[in-house]
Amino acid sequence: MKKDLIWKAAIYLIMSMVIVAGIAFPIVEKPSAWYEFPLIMGLGENAKIIFFHVPSSWLTVIAYLMAMVYGVKYLRKKNLEDDMKSYAAIQLGSIFCILATVTGSVWAKFAWGSFWHWDPRETSIFALLLIYGALFALRSAIENDEKRATLSAVYSIIAFITVPFFIFIMPRIMTGLHPGSADDSNAGPVVNFKMNANMQVVFYVSLAVFTMLYFWMWKLGSSALILNEKVKKLKYRS
């Protein structure tokens, strides 16, 4: 119980620090103080969304990966709890996928001129949303618990095969507007070369704390789903 509290306090404190650093630390041309971030050509002040936008899409990948892992677990052991864990991960993954899309689109309005461009990055995340959106439709269409769990597990495994391609490969090999595209000469690859050390520290801390937050949310979501199943079973018995 106490250990739990330490984790939660850590999430709260570190996340607050990331938010403060992300909003308050200035971007200057030649950073000299420890709190200054470098100016990245073509990105400007709003480059700081990297501390919130990139972790959202990072969590999308983690959540969909976990959906697949628990899908495989379900298929091996046929334990409905694993299906619930997989489903909770899919829900969270889709929330963060939508967040990454919306935050990216707000940023695009000011960086590229309009909310939506059908840039390779935008197209790929849209395809990803459609693929996992179909999984919700699939789940709600089947009444039988075992059948739903099996189909959903198989679907989440097949769907995950597309995730690395859509998130990591396709937007990087095609030319586009998003930082990190194939013809990007100003900004990309942002993470490796253009950030200075303190910006990288904030970035990786932000990734870590968002991941911790995700695991907390996932634990809550899956326990609520598992409890729901248990209550349903009690109802049928009585």
Partner: peptide, 14 residues
């Protein structure tokens, strides 16, 4: 800078 703030708010809303 306010765009960054909007983005933080969107994430929080989610």
């Amino acid at each position: 800078l306010y765009i960054v703030m909007i983005i933080v708010l969107i994430t929080w809303t989610g």
